[in-house]
């Protein structure tokens, strides 16, 4: 089966920043988590995918079509949540629904209304009076009410409390039960991705550092803890990242199962995405 999204060799240059050869794919029925520090190129990549900014190189295929050939048709099938870009805050959800109803062919008023009820968003109150979390929920409702096949979400869970975040993550998991659906989600909240993502794409300084299934990734890396004097016993080539504390070292090691056999005298723990991210970037320095 061809992936829902396939992007290759994307290049975009800004003064002081370049997106270099970015490429990845999103298989149907999956959630791809897009991680990286601020300014690493996540939003730039998302903007390129939507043709909001012009790329210097590369190609973008979404739902089997080249974005340059069928941009508007493709966008009928995409729902987006963009970082702080939405309707003017003077409008009400009801008005927003009416506008979007005229924009999207498949807009579903009833579905939109059901999301508003589910998220407890008053229909006739202007967005100005909404909290940050409510605005985010509204943006998500607006992105999903035209039965899209692909969701492109730039930090959709930031500003939400854990309860609501979980509710929304469940909604996303529900969404990808359909094999023709997929989600690209960029976020700093890596624990969200641990819950829902199938693949992780890690971008750093405009380059893809990791592009792997989440389970493999969490299985591949391990955290080895040792005392200050023991660190010399570990081969340099096994170490992907280091953190030194007063009591000893924490070492991010590759190929966890092999390491457990190789260094039976040390404790090697599981790692989470955040640790992988932080240690890999530290190890680089």
């Amino acid at each position: 089966m061809t992936p829902l999204v396939e992007i290759n060799h994307l290049v975009k240059t800004y003064p002081g920043f370049q997106l270099k050869n970015v490429g990845f794919s999103i298989p149907g029925g999956s959630i791809v988590g897009f991680i990286g520090e601020n300014g690493s190129g996540k939003t730039t990549t998302i903007k390129l995918m939507l043709n909001l900014i012009h790329r210097e190189q590369g190609d973008i295929h979404i739902l089997g079509q080249d974005i340059d050939d069928a941009e508007v048709g493709i966008k009928e099938e995409i729902g987006v949540v963009l970082d702080d870009s939405f309707f003017y805050e003077g409008l009400t959800p009801q008005q927003i629904g009416r506008v979007l109803g005229k924009v999207y062919k498949n807009w579903d008023d009833a579905l939109f209304a059901s999301y508003l009820t589910k998220f407890q968003l008053p229909e006739k109150k202007s967005v100005k009076e909404y909290s940050k979390g409510m605005r985010m929920k509204l943006a998500i409702a607006a992105a999903m009410a035209h039965h899209p096949k692909l969701l492109i979400l730039d930090e959709p869970t930031s500003g939400l409390d854990p309860v609501v975040r979980n509710e929304i993550l469940d909604l996303f998991l529900d969404f990808i039960q359909d094999e023709e659906h997929a989600i690209l989600i960029s976020t700093h909240i890596t624990s969200d991705l641990e819950r829902i993502a199938d693949y992780i794409v890690f971008i750093h300084h405009g380059k893809i550092l990791l592009n792997q299934s989440k389970d493999e990734l969490l299985e591949y890396y391990g955290m080895l803890r040792c005392g200050l004097q023991d660190v010399d016993k570990i081969d340099q080539e096994d170490i992907a990242g280091v953190r030194k504390s007063g009591f000893g070292y924490e070492l991010l090691v590759k190929e966890k199962s092999r390491m457990i056999k190789k260094y039976p005298q040390f404790v090697i723990d599981k790692v989470d995405l955040e640790e992988i991210m932080v240690f890999l970037l530290k190890g680089e320095k």
């Binding site: 909001l52 987006v80 963009l82 870009s85 805050e89 003077g90």
Partner: peptide, 18 residues
């Protein structure tokens, strides 16, 4: 001005419109 403050053009360009 409203479009500016809400970065509407970006959102609009992500919708199925030319």
């Amino acid at each position: 001005s409203y479009d500016d403050t809400s970065k509407w053009d970006r959102y609009a360009a992500a919708m199925p419109v030319y």
